[in-house]
Design a protein around this nucleic acid. Structure first.
Lengths: 341, 341
DNA sequence: CTTAATTCTTTACGCGCGTAAATTTTATGT
DNA sequence: ACATAAAATTTACGCGCGTAAAGAATTAAG
């Protein structure tokens, strides 16, 4: 590490005894040079620790090693967790991921895409805002940049879609709730940000019909991404007006359920499976926090690893030349039984 | 937006009728050109929507407009929230922030700094991992890049430090707890990741002495960043062995408190201020989730906005030439009274 | 040892822009 | 109107690297 101030690749090539174009080739892909050359360069690298100027590098390269990872809201632990997972997969595969959050704002989402465009990324892993997204802007972006859509699907844009099977989620947990107690009613936002919410409601309706029960949907008001508060306030209203038709409530997602649990607590209603409990509450998502609610939340969890891996691998293979047609992959969730239902 | 494929600044300068060096000057700082010229350029910009190549831009510029924002763990909603806040301030100030997370891993933290170095950022807002950080690596980085340290202080490195006043946090909430019930015992991790934890324990000890009470600290085992689980398991143990000396527990941080609340629930212990409650639990941090625990968590909250603003503004003024000496700013927290204590 | 296939070296150009210096144009004050 | 300051233009060079082409060196195969 006696780095004698190597200023550029020219100098580094000189001290390593290898020509600059070959060194350039090495940095582009170490496997592309002979093993003995690689060893020479790498031993020189240990002595001088030089790093190529990324700006000069990316200026002329047809394809950078940059990847974009875009999530709608990084302060949501679900997206934070999946972003972390994706980021590490990208690094492991030799790419340079950059993390972006739309912060729940459609205008910001468009800006993020513009920024991303100027980064000339090799590819992008994009979880759109959903309903609020500027569809046209997304489409145009996907035409220019290899983009894999995940989490929430918006038409057939991009290379492919990878997400969870929301129909399976809801039908599976509805089935569980029906088998273990009263059939559930469904607690959701009236105008959800995410299109998955519609699939979940539909799946609830289908499942209830299938099992011969009368479905009942409670849709609560509320805009934005403060789901817990929407669930809490909506929960208070619904409880006050006695709008829950059964003692079992299936929430459209965990964050809503967390808010509802708080509302129940605040009204002195005991939630759970015990003898002394009034109602059962279940969520959907396997939110990182769901383990620590009181009572711990019964939910159906995304397979974070599988979604991340499928998404990342699809993008990588597309970048590396695989030209398979658009495809939607929806992975099943796993029921997580806890005390709330 | 009839963008007739502007390929570079040369072409854009031609169509806008302004010379390229002036256009370059404009993109570097729009205020640096005459208002009439600015108007000319901006109207051309609307017609052709050209964006300078950021790689070519940053290659020769002495100082880029890039900023780094580094947090120890982006999946922690506290850091996610503060990162979001900082990011938006950077954008508003005309910089290009890039978000990094060390994911709780010291080796990754060093890697992030290396990556950051090659981005030649104008400055960095860095929240170190803390105890686990590679001190030497941090120091060397701070020597090369204008870095403002926030959240957790590590020696007097970087431009300055901005964070919360942990002494005030703990003494304030200890005072509150003493005045409203039994004096608290202190629930913490034996080997905390964050140096703030030591300040909090010390402040607890001081405050208890001041008020003439006997302090009692319960330190629980557990490594890593899964604070909720550490709090839950440690809580179970402590409850089982009856190690809490009073009916009031002040937790070193909210995530630990959240885990403890879950443990209490699981043991059928009622937490809160009500007649029927056995113990009181309080946290520290004002974690985004603390509003939705059951019962809602009494805590003392970081002033997110003030911390972010002070940190961002300090960095900006340092970048713009202010050479004030190293300084530590510690902002007071606000008590948030809820039902748990 | 010859031959062919790889791999490396040399040479050279260009990417898109920052930036400096000298010159010309435009704005400002009297 | 003039002198002066401020801003824009012209010209030119260089940043650090990607990349292409042609020739030399190395390796692998027969």
């Amino acid at each position: 590490m006696a780095d004698n101030k190597i200023r550029n690749m020219e100098e580094f090539a000189r001290v390593s005894g290898i020509s600059r174009p070959t060194v350039s080739k090495y940095f582009n892909d170490p496997e592309s040079v002979r093993a003995s050359t690689r060893a020479t360069i790498e031993s020189a690298l240990e002595l001088h620790d030089y790093r190529p100027n990324i700006y000069a590098m990316n200026q002329n390269r047809k394809l950078t090693k940059n990847l974009g990872v875009v999530v709608p809201l990084l302060t949501d632990p679900y997206f934070a967790e999946i972003a972390r997972n994706l980021e590490q997969r990208c690094i492991a595969a030799g790419y340079r991921p950059t993390l972006f959050s739309s912060h729940g704002d459609p205008a910001l989402e468009v800006e993020v895409l513009e920024t991303l465009r100027s980064l000339k990324p090799a590819g992008v892993l994009l979880a759109p805002l959903g309903r609020a997204s500027d569809q046209r802007a997304l489409e145009r972006f996907c035409e220019d940049v290899p983009t894999l859509i995940f989490d929430s699907s918006v038409d057939e844009i991009g290379l492919s879609f990878v997400g969870s099977d929301n129909y399976q989620f809801t039908s599976h947990i509805t089935d569980y709730l029906c088998r273990t107690g009263e059939a559930p009613c469904f607690f959701e936002m009236k105008t959800p940000a995410n299109p998955n919410a519609h699939r979940r409601r539909q799946s609830y309706l289908n499942a209830m019909k299938l099992y011969g029960h009368t479905p009942h949907v409670i849709s609560v008001e509320g805009e934005g991404w403060g789901f817990e508060e929407i669930g809490r306030l909506g929960g208070h209203d619904a409880l006050k007006e006695d709008r829950f038709s059964t003692n079992t409530i299936l929430c459209s997602n965990d964050r809503l359920a967390i808010g509802l649990l708080t509302a129940c607590y605040e009204r002195g209603i005991k939630v759970g499976r015990g003898e002394d409990c009034t109602i059962r509450v279940a969520g959907q998502d396997g939110h990182p926090h769901s383990r620590y609610t009181c009572p711990p939340l019964t939910t159906i969890s995304h397979d974070y690893d599988a979604v991340s891996q499928t998404a990342a691998d699809s993008l990588f293979s597309a970048i590396e030349g695989d030209v398979s047609p658009w495809k939607s992959t929806r992975l099943e969730g796993k029921l997580i039984l806890r005390d709330s239902a």
